[in-house]
Simulated assay, not measured.
Amino acid sequence: MNINQSNLSKLLNELVEAGLVEKWEEQEGYKLPKSYYKITDEGKKALIFYEIEDNFKNLKKKQLSMIHNIIYDESTIIP
């Protein structure tokens, strides 16, 4: 993946603001502080939904039609 530091910083800040990632900094002497990032529980949930959505996009129309029929057909009993 080819992304410049400025774009990466902006994306990470957006994820922090959305509560999907947490950020903290640690100062080491006179050097610039190091930034660390960690996915939050909400971020993990969002990632799961993203992966589910991505999988649904890859389904063929026939497969989606079968799922729709199972969900909305009242005569279908799902154990």
Rank of each mutant, 00 (worst) to 15 (best):
E42R: 07
A46T: 02
E42G: 08
K60H: 12
K60T: 03
I52P: 00
Q63G: 06
E17I: 02
I77S: 07
Y37F: 06
V21F: 12
N7R: 15
D54E: 02
T40N: 09
Y36Q: 12
E17T: 05
T40I: 08
I3M: 15
L20E: 05
D73V: 07
G43H: 05
E42A: 10
Y50V: 01
I52E: 03
D41E: 09
D73I: 03
P79M: 04
L32R: 15
N55R: 11
Y72C: 13
T40M: 13
I77F: 09
I71L: 15
K62T: 08
H68Y: 10
K31T: 00
Y72E: 10
L12H: 08
S75D: 01
L11H: 01
V16P: 02
N69S: 06
L12Y: 06
N7Y: 04
V16N: 10
I67T: 01
L8A: 07
V16G: 09
E28Y: 05
Q5H: 12
I70D: 05
F56V: 05
G43Q: 11
L11Y: 14
S6I: 04
E51H: 13
E25A: 15
S75A: 03
P33H: 10
Y50F: 01
P33T: 07
I70Y: 12
K44P: 01
K23C: 01
P33Y: 09
D41F: 07
G29L: 11
S35F: 01
E17R: 08
N55Y: 05
K62N: 06
W24C: 08
G29Q: 07
E14W: 07
E28I: 05
L20Y: 05
E74P: 00
N2Q: 13
L64D: 03
L59M: 10
E53V: 09
E25K: 13
F49G: 00
E51C: 11
I48D: 01
V16S: 12
A18N: 09
K61I: 06
S9Y: 14
E53Q: 07
Q5V: 11
L15K: 02
I70S: 07
I70C: 06
L8Y: 06
Q27W: 11
M66H: 05
E51D: 12
K31G: 00
K61M: 15
K44L: 12
I67M: 03
M1D: 13
V21R: 06
T40A: 12
E17K: 07
L11K: 15
K62I: 03
G19N: 10
E25P: 00
I67Y: 08
Y37V: 12
F49P: 00
L20F: 10
I52Y: 03
I48K: 12
K23A: 09
K62W: 08
D41I: 04
Q63T: 00
V21Q: 14
P33S: 15
P33N: 14
V16F: 04
P79I: 08
